[in-house]
Nucleic acid binder design. Structure first.
Lengths: 342, 342
DNA sequence: CTGAAAGCGCTTACAG
DNA sequence: CTGAAAGCGCTTACAG
C-alpha cells in the first residue's frame, strides 16, 4: 500500500516542485510521453507512487475535451418496472460494465422515457458522455435515427432494421424464433402460440422466424394464438388466462423471454394444465433461473455478457473514428424439459 | 424542441457576447443568482433556450471542485457471476439510479474485487466521485471501516455491525429470519434447515432470527441442517443434493434469497420430494419471479427500490455535511404456496 | 446590479 | 530533452 510519506501532493505542480522540474515535464513523465528521458520519467513515476499521487482524471478529461464516460440507456416503458428487473438486463449491464472498466471508461446509467428519446440530447446522458449504448429500440427507430444523424457515437442493441443510420448489435432473433418453433414442430406440436408483444423490431423478427417454421410444416400463424403478453406479470397472467379460457386449441407456446415463459408456465399450471404434457413452453434468453424452474425451461441462449463487450468495443471504435460494422451474435437452442423433449 | 437558430453557441462566452454582457453576468443569470436583475436573467435564459445552449456541467463541476458522480459498488465475489445477475440487484440499482437522476447526479457503476476494497481509493470509483454507495458488506467490514475513517462520503447496504464508522441502511434481517422460521413452526414443521452462507453480517443476522424462533419452540439449530449454499447455482444444487441424500431429516428450509430458494425447490423436486408437502421452502427478497415459481414462493419482502432511494438520500446528506443516521427498513412475510400455508 | 481577473488541474504547440 | 505560456468552460471574491 502506497502510503503518503511526508509531503502532501495534491496536484501536478506539487509533484513537479518536489522533483525540481516543470509541470509540463511532470505531466509528460506520468503519461509515458517518449520524448522524456527515462531517468526523469522513472524519477517522477516513483515519486508519484510513493506519495500516493495519481493524475486527476477529471481535470485531464476536461483539458482533453472528453469525458471518459459512456452512457447506457435502457429503452423501457417506465410504467412496467418488471421489465427493468428482468435478469437479462443485469447480465447485459454486467458485461458492459466490465468491458468499460477495462478501457478506463465510466458507465453512466439511464433509462429513457421511451416517448422522448430526443430529450437525451439536452441531457447529461448525451451531452457529457463520449458515447451512448442503447439497450433495445422499443418503437423509437425513427428517433434513434435522428440522434445518429448528428454524428453521435452510439450503438444499439436491437434489430438491424432497414434504413438505419446507427450501428446495431443483435442476437439472431429470426433464427431464434425459427429454432424454437421448429423444435416444437419436430416434437409433434401443431397448435403453437406466440406469446409476447411484437411492437419492437427484435420480437417482430422472432415472430417472423416462428411463422417461417410454421410455414415449412404447412401451417400458418393463427392470429388467435398470438398473444400480446405485457411485461407486467400480473397483467400477463390475466391475458394468458383469458386466452386459454376462451377455448382456443393450444399445445405449445413460444415466448419472447424467459420471464414471460415462467409466467406462462405458472399460469397454465394454475389453470390445471400440465407443462409440457398439455402445453409445451419455450422461452428466450436463458437467464440463470431458467434451469431451475419447474419444469426446467427450454430456451434460446444468447451470450449476453459477450454482447455487452461487443457493444462497448463498438462505441469505443466509433470514438476512435473507426468505421464500425453491425454485429449479429449466434443464438443457441437449449433443450430442457418444458418443451417435452427432455 | 429548441432548435439552434442562426449563431452557434458553444459556451458561456458566446452567449454573453450575443447578449452584450460579460461572461460573469451570463453565468449568474443562468444559475438564477438573485443578485442579477430579472430583466437580464430572463433575457439570458431565453437566449440560451432558443439557441439550445446549456451550461457545460463538466466544466462547472470542475470549477466547483466536485464531480456530480456517485459511485455504486457491488460487493460480490466476482467468481460467482450468478450472484450479480440476481434480480434483487437490478431492483436496487434501479431505485438508486432513479433517485440519483432526480438530484442530477450520475451513477458510476463498479464491482469491487472483494479482497481489496481499499484499492478503490486509488481508483476513479472513489477519487472522482463525490460519494460511494456499497451494496453488501461481504466479509469486508474492517476495510469499509478504514475507508470511512478518511472522511469519505459513503453508505453501506448491509448490517449495522458493532463499532462501525460508516452509515448503514439495512433490512430487518433478524426480523425476517425470525418471521419466516416462525411461520414454518406455526405450520407444524420442526426439522427446519437454513440454506445459505452466513459469512456476511446480513445473512448471519437472518440466521440468528432463525435460531431465535427455533428457541421459542424449544428447538435448537441442528448444524447438520445448516448448509452453506454457494451462489453459483450448479454447485448449490450439488450441495443441497448431498445433504438430502445423506439422510438428514428435513421438512422445511429457510433460504437466504429467492434465488437460492428456487434452486432448492428445483433440486428437491428432482430428488422426488414434493414442495411443500415433503419440504416447505421460504425465500428472501420477493423478486418479481417469486410469485411465478411452481409452487409460488413464500418469502420475505424488502422494499428494494425504496431502499435504493434511502441510500441515495443518505450519501447526498453526507455531502451536504449533515449527520446521517442509520436506517432500518421493515420486512414483510409474503405467504404463498411453497411454505404449505396457501 | 455588473465586470475584470484569477484560478480549478491538467496538456501541448511552440520555442529553446 | 525540458520549460513558459496559453487555454479547456466555467464561477466567484473583489471592486465599482
Amino acid at each position: 500500500m502506497a502510503k503518503p510519506t511526508d509531503t502532501k501532493i495534491a496536484n501536478l505542480q506539487d509533484l513537479a516542485d518536489l522533483a525540481g522540474v516543470s509541470r509540463a515535464t511532470a505531466s509528460r513523465a506520468l503519461n509515458d510521453n517518449p520524448v522524456i528521458s527515462e531517468k526523469t520519467r522513472e524519477k517522477l513515476q516513483a515519486l508519484a507512487k510513493s506519495h500516493g499521487y495519481s493524475i486527476n482524471q477529471k481535470a485531464r478529461d476536461f483539458r482533453l475535451q472528453r469525458t471518459s464516460v459512456i452512457s447506457v440507456v435502457f429503452m423501457l416503458d417506465i410504467a412496467s418496472e418488471q421489465h427493468m428487473s428482468d435478469p437479462f438486463f443485469l447480465d447485459m449491464l454486467g458485461g458492459i460494465a466490465d468491458a468499460l472498466a477495462e478501457h478506463n471508461y465510466d458507465l453512466l446509467l439511464a433509462h429513457a422515457p421511451v416517448e422522448d428519446v430526443l430529450e437525451l440530447r439536452n441531457n447529461r446522458v448525451m451531452q457529457q458522455s463520449d458515447g451512448t449504448i442503447f439497450i433495445g429500440q422499443a418503437q423509437q427507430h425513427g428517433q434513434l435515427n435522428e440522434l445518429a444523424e448528428d454524428d453521435t457515437n452510439m450503438v444499439v442493441w436491437g434489430y438491424p432494421v432497414r434504413d438505419k443510420s446507427y450501428v446495431v448489435v443483435s442476437g439472431d432473433n429470426a433464427g431464434g424464433g425459427y429454432a424454437s418453433t421448429k423444435h416444437l414442430l419436430e416434437l409433434g406440436r401443431r397448435q403453437i402460440a406466440f406469446f409476447g408483444s411484437v411492437d419492437n423490431p427484435e420480437n417482430a423478427a422472432r415472430h417472423e422466424g416462428y411463422l417461417k417454421a410454421l410455414g415449412e410444416y404447412g401451417l400458418d400463424g393463427n392470429p388467435e394464438r398470438m398473444v400480446d403478453v405485457p411485461f407486467e406479470m400480473h397483467r400477463a397472467r390475466e391475458v394468458i388466462k383469458e386466452m386459454v379460457e376462451s377455448g382456443i386449441d393450444l399445445d405449445a407456446a413460444v415466448c419472447v423471454s424467459d420471464v414471460v415463459a415462467l409466467a406462462t408456465i405458472s399460469t397454465l399450471q394454475e389453470l390445471g394444465l400440465e407443462v409440457p404434457k398439455d402445453v409445451a413452453v419455450v422461452g428466450y434468453d436463458d437467464i440463470s433461473l431458467a434451469a431451475y424452474s419447474n419444469p426446467p425451461l427450454t430456451t434460446i441462449r444468447q451470450n449476453i455478457r459477450h454482447a455487452g463487450r461487443i457493444l462497448v468495443e463498438s462505441v469505443l471504435g466509433q470514438i476512435q473514428g473507426e468505421h464500425v460494422p453491425d454485429t449479429m451474435l449466434a443464438s443457441e437452442l437449449v433443450i430442457r424439459k418444458s418443451s417435452g423433449a427432455g
